[in-house]
Design a protein around this nucleic acid. Structure first.
Lengths: 342, 342
DNA sequence: TTGAAAGCGGTACCAT
DNA sequence: ATGGTACCGCTTTCAA
């Protein structure tokens, strides 16, 4: 390993003290080449030249141990290979980039043990804050964070009693209203819901909302929730779908993008026509939606907005510019073929 | 901000020196509760108890500045929201997790300036090594890495003259052989290629290989390469497709997953039948492939293998267990409807 | 088997 | 406007 150039080397090369080098490097140099601190312009220039000449790369670890700030934010989603989360991650990454933060990503795999380990490793790294999509039963893993005073923003799912956390959530009640109204207005009455069998606030909300909307329309006898195990194979989804159809279901409310894609695949495999044999409203968006034959109606939550709101909230919390708050985003119904009247 | 518990606090609580705490914490405790270093079992136990009692979280930054190792690996792909790369990322993350490394992800957006900035920020963080999918014209951004002696593995694309880098690449010649043979054997002769107009080794390889395979079959007069700008809108893809069809193209060799998805969408929008109006072989896999009507034939490269090979190679390089090498992975043809005879 | 103390590469305060 | 220096939290000799 080649010896790394340190601030000492730069100081020696420029013939100044390391303190001055540090000052200059941490000041913003204006467009006129004048730094915003009390350093002679020529001195600053000389230091910068030495930096360039030696190829000096500041050691962030060293800086962070003294300053107590790492400028690292952890983004913990349930699965970074899910397009919904990877899009959010991408947007956050870009925002962070412009804001001078580094991002570390991790997936919890909907598993609270993994979540716990991942949170732990973020703590060891000394991240300045975390954006977390809580996994099912993740409370225990997360609760020990509450005592540490480290800024946290929960994204897309809530941990209800967690103190001092920021929250960026979808208005699920509105999503339920939109999708059930869409299917109802198209003439469907036997509307079933498909959800993962997981202990997550978002899922609970959507199931409740579905029930409420059905009830409002006098369809409470038609209420049926199909539970899918997370990570289900296509065969299990086909079985679910077969059951629903034979029960007389006319339409499905599919509550995540992976459920939507799986159900679409099952529909294709069972040779069902959409919306004649079965109509549906999906959720969240996936690139799959665009290519599908009768294109997909779905509830869209803007990944860009989710990213923006959670990132800016967290940064404000880190920089003490604001208390933790709750932001409720509005879903949008993208109306296409799969929820059409027929 | 609450004061963080440090190793000093643990030492005081346990009534020992900080050196001893450090020793115990960095030793592996066997199943018999005996650490693999010269510490009395009871002392070790007492220290561990204090750690638990105080909720001590080691500060990795502090450790790394002294030890020179951060245990962080940077994974720089072109776009983490592309399912191909996000799957690789996920696999690498899991491997790293078990190996005690932290991963930071970043996207270059196929842009060498962004790549340069991202690499820079990885260097500041002091990552132990990097896995990089080089962006077009990324040589300049990468070349300054070669002097630093930091372990690098290039993934899926090569930077030919870069010294001492590991490489994990697909056997593109074999991929071209497979896909052209597939289409040829199905009876297609007017086979065109669609590729991004980007300066990347992988693209160059595939274009060459396409030409070679066509030539081998006496089809050199039918050779036609359709170039797509990266980030093309669907309208441009439709135009490309219209041109190809009116030129009499019977089949397309689509050289990335995003090109494949875009072309599939264009095919749908233009109401073309697959494979009657246009046959194709895609590349890389996307969840979209499974749901599409006449399912997609494609060249598959295992994201799991790519992840495994690049990660293990990098770790070996970091830990000085091996020199940089080149691993060539074999593609696989997944034969389905879109390349059928008709 | 344990402890003291010298760094690691910066930052931040206090002098000058 | 610039320099001196005491840290930050941990690892790593070296001595006891």
């Amino acid at each position: 390993m080649v010896k790394r150039v340190t601030i000492k080397d730069v100081a020696k090369e420029a013939g100044v003290s390391i303190a001055l080098v540090s000052m200059v490097l941490n000041s913003n140099i204006g467009p006129d080449g004048k730094p915003d601190c009390n350093v002679r312009k020529e001195t600053a220039k000389r230091i910068l030249q030495s930096v360039a000449k030696l190829g000096y790369i500041p050691n962030k670890a060293a800086a962070s141990i003294r300053s107590g700030k790492t400028n690292i934010i952890a983004v913990i989603t349930s699965d970074i290979s899910n397009s919904f989360f990877s899009e959010i991650s991408k947007y956050i990454e870009n925002l962070a980039y412009d804001g001078g933060y580094n991002i570390i990503f991790a997936s919890s795999d909907e598993n609270y043990e993994k979540l716990s380990r991942v949170v732990d490793s973020a703590l060891r790294l000394g991240v300045d804050g975390m954006i977390i999509v809580p996994s099912p039963n993740g409370e225990a893993a997360l609760n020990r964070l509450s005592g540490l005073g480290i800024p946290i923003v929960f994204l897309e799912r809530d941990v209800p009693d967690f103190p001092n956390a920021g929250r960026v959530l979808l208005d699920n009640a509105e999503a339920d209203r939109l999708s059930i109204a869409e299917l109802y207005d198209a003439g469907y009455r036997k509307i079933e819901l498909v959800a993962y069998d997981m202990n997550i606030s978002t899922i609970h909300n959507r199931i409740e909302g579905y029930g409420r909307e059905m009830f409002k329309r006098g369809l409470d006898k038609n209420i049926h929730v199909n539970y899918l195990k997370h990570g289900s194979k296509i065969e299990q989804v086909e079985a679910m779908l077969r059951n629903a159809v034979s029960r007389g279901a006319e339409a499905l409310y599919l509550t995540t993008n992976t459920i939507t894609v799986l159900t679409m695949t099952a529909i294709k495999n069972l040779n069902l026509k959409v919306p004649e044999d079965i109509a549906f409203v999906g959720f969240d968006y996936s690139p799959v939606f665009d290519v599908y034959g009768t294109t997909v109606s779905y509830i869209r939550q803007s990944t860009e907005q989710l990213a923006y709101e959670s990132y800016t909230m967290l940064v404000k919390m880190i920089e003490n510019k604001a208390e933790a708050g709750t932001v409720m985003l509005s879903p949008e119904l993208v109306r296409r073929g799969s929820s059409k009247n027929c």
